[in-house]
Computed example of a mutant assay.
Amino acid sequence: MLCVGTSAEQLAAVAEATAGGVAVVYLPDDAALRAVIEGVGSVAVSAHRVIEVGKLRLDADLREATWHGEVMTLSSRDFDLLYALAGDPGRVWAFSELTTHVWGRPYVGDTQAVVSAVKRLRRSLRCAAPGVQVESVRSVGYRVTVAEVPIPSH
């Protein structure tokens, strides 16, 4: 069985309902979903996946993160986690949603992988992007906020 979803909520719901037993195709928006439905057989979705929040820019296709135009060195997991959180800044992402969306596996109640990854991401952001904060929402999950922090002149 193949399921197609356009949101992390849909992805998490399918993964939870099927205990991870189906393939899920994640499409970035409804336009991409329409392209798939209307172009059955040959699908070419060319949306360039870039998120910009203030001076934070994440390019999923290039796997590049920049803060005030400066490239940030992030691990693959850090990038994926930040990309998910920054995709909807201010929104609280539940542990289950992050597990499904970032790790691509069903959530079984263990929050440790998410907690550890957030700690590593926060360490990476402290120096590279001081205006980007990953905030905890107790017993729920995390959200990202981006403040305009002036960069020091060299």
Rank of each mutant, 00 (worst) to 15 (best):
A8W: 04
L62T: 14
W103C: 01
E97N: 03
S46E: 15
E135F: 00
G5Q: 03
V132L: 06
R126V: 06
D110H: 05
Y142L: 09
E97V: 07
L85Y: 02
V53E: 12
R126C: 03
A17P: 00
A44N: 12
R91N: 03
A23E: 13
E52I: 03
G87L: 02
V114H: 05
L11I: 07
V92D: 09
I37G: 00
T111R: 15
A113H: 07
Q133K: 13
A35T: 15
L81K: 12
V24H: 00
G109V: 06
W67H: 08
G54S: 05
G90K: 03
V92I: 12
K55D: 15
G20M: 03
V114S: 05
W103H: 11
T100F: 00
G141T: 08
A147D: 15
R122A: 07
D29K: 01
L98F: 05
V115M: 11
V36G: 14
L58R: 08
V102F: 02
A94L: 10
L98A: 07
R77P: 05
R143C: 11
V36M: 14
L82M: 10
V149W: 08
R122F: 05
H101P: 00
T99N: 07
E38P: 03
L121I: 06
K119P: 04
A65I: 08
A15F: 04
L62K: 15
V118L: 07
Q133E: 14
H154N: 13
D61M: 09
P28L: 05
A35W: 12
Y83W: 14
S153Q: 15
G104T: 03
T73G: 13
A113M: 11
W103Q: 10
P89V: 01
E38M: 09
P89T: 00
D29A: 06
R77F: 01
V137W: 07
E97H: 04
E70Y: 03
R91Q: 09
H68Y: 03
A23N: 03
E9P: 00
V43L: 06
Y83I: 01
L125A: 11
A35V: 08
V53P: 08
L58D: 10
L2E: 07
Q133C: 02
L56I: 07
A94N: 04
A44P: 01
V40W: 07
G21L: 05
R120D: 15
Y107N: 02
A13R: 08
E16I: 00
P150H: 10
S139W: 10
R138D: 12
G54D: 05
G39N: 13
W103A: 07
T145E: 12
G41I: 02
W67G: 06
G54H: 05
R49H: 10
L74W: 13
R143W: 03
V118C: 09
S76K: 11
E64G: 02
C3V: 09
E64H: 12
W93Q: 05
G54N: 05
L56Q: 09
A94D: 11
G109Y: 09
A32H: 05
G131V: 06
P150V: 04
K119H: 13
T100W: 00
L85H: 06
V115E: 13
